[in-house]
Amino acid sequence: MKKVLNLLLAVIMAVTLTGCFGANMQIQMKSDGSGVMSYSYMIDSGVNKYIMSDPELKKELSGLTDFKQTKEMYDDCYYVCYTKEVPFSSPKELKKILTDSRTFNELFSPGSIEEDKEDTDKENEGLFSYVDIGADHLQAVYSSVNSSYQEIDDYNDYVNDNDFMDYQAMENSIFMRINITFDKEITYTNGSLSADKKTASWKIKLSEYYDTLLQASTSGKDVFAKDTKVPDIYPVKDGKYYPGYISILVTDNFGVKSVTCNGKKVPADYTVFKDGKYVIEAEDYFGNKAKKTFYIDMQSPKISGVKNGVIYKSERTIRFSDKYGIKSATLNGKTIKTGKKVSKNGKYKLVVKDRAGNTTRATFTIKKK
């Protein structure tokens, strides 16, 4: 997850104020592949004033001492911006900044460096999961940060103590703004284009469920890599039955555009808890689609005609059923079907298993006079 936005979330939670918060990335790409990248933390001016007046809250911004402070009006909100510029000598160097979290944090989020060093096993997930950039183009996948708040230690206590706050509304007020400027005019972009046609821009909300594909080029669409791989829906298998809840993760090498569960829009990481049939459908930004159908069944098969531990003095008829179907049923190790009649004296062990692996057992005895 993105520590740059976690900082803003932590401040919001500490202050318990509403307001606009965001981050702004600006890339100035020269024709030789070198350039300058700037990154800004954008904080609502009223909240920033409150933070500056409180010594404890002010510590939240202590890592930004070498950032230039400016003010900006954007989307009807007045911001105090903390900005830092870093030059890069090649697209390769810029790509590392964008895709490697430790490299990014060393430059733009100094308060996160020690935490990253302590967690040596952590993946270096950067702002972007995929980047192809050159002097004439950008194709990148900005990773969703929808679950960033889960990394904040006090989140659960905060929600319990402040249940009046609409957390979803707060998520919607936090954004990431990305801009790239080329020396030549942009001939294709899926973002917004500036008046001089040299800058492409995107605005992404924290509440966005999915990854975002960014494309901009001064030489048309043919420069972009093509993708024919369908999204991966993990870990479920098509047609399989599961005896408990399942956490689903949908991934794609070029970004997940949409995911639905039984026709309803859901996040790319989604958990289903209830019994039922589920159809997960996913699509990436190139129109590649994947679909998996699976079932959750946490109920054991039902049996009738016999009960565990009971001694019967007459013939019994064994019946069993399950909402999603029986996989196997054995009586003393031999396969049987529902409706099986048992009349001989003896001890019997019945084992019935459904397709999800739920099992019902009954041991009974027939002892006729």
Rank of each mutant, 00 (worst) to 15 (best):
N288C: 12
N262K: 05
F286R: 06
K291H: 08
K291L: 10
L249W: 05
G263P: 10
T271C: 10
E281M: 07
T293H: 07
G287K: 09
I246C: 05
I280S: 00
T293D: 05
Y278I: 05
K292Q: 12
A268Y: 06
N262Y: 07
N288V: 09
Y285W: 11
K265R: 12
D275A: 06
G244I: 05
V279I: 15
N262V: 07
Y245K: 14
I246T: 11
I246K: 10
Y242D: 02
G239V: 13
G255I: 03
G255E: 01
F294C: 03
P243H: 08
K265N: 13
V279R: 08
S258D: 13
D252E: 08
S258Q: 13
T251M: 04
V279N: 12
G255Q: 01
D252S: 14
K240Y: 15
I248Y: 00
Y241Q: 02
G255R: 00
Y278R: 12
Y245H: 12
K257C: 00
K289T: 12
I280R: 01
N262W: 07
I280D: 00
V279C: 12
K277T: 10
V250Q: 02
K274E: 14
Y295T: 04
I280G: 00
V256Q: 01
A268L: 09
N253M: 14
K291N: 10
E281W: 05
T271R: 13
T251I: 08
Y278C: 03
E281N: 13
D269K: 15
E281V: 12
D284R: 03
K277G: 11
P243M: 03
T271V: 10
T271Y: 06
P267L: 08
T251P: 05
N253L: 11
I246F: 02
K257V: 02
G239E: 11
K265S: 13
K264V: 13
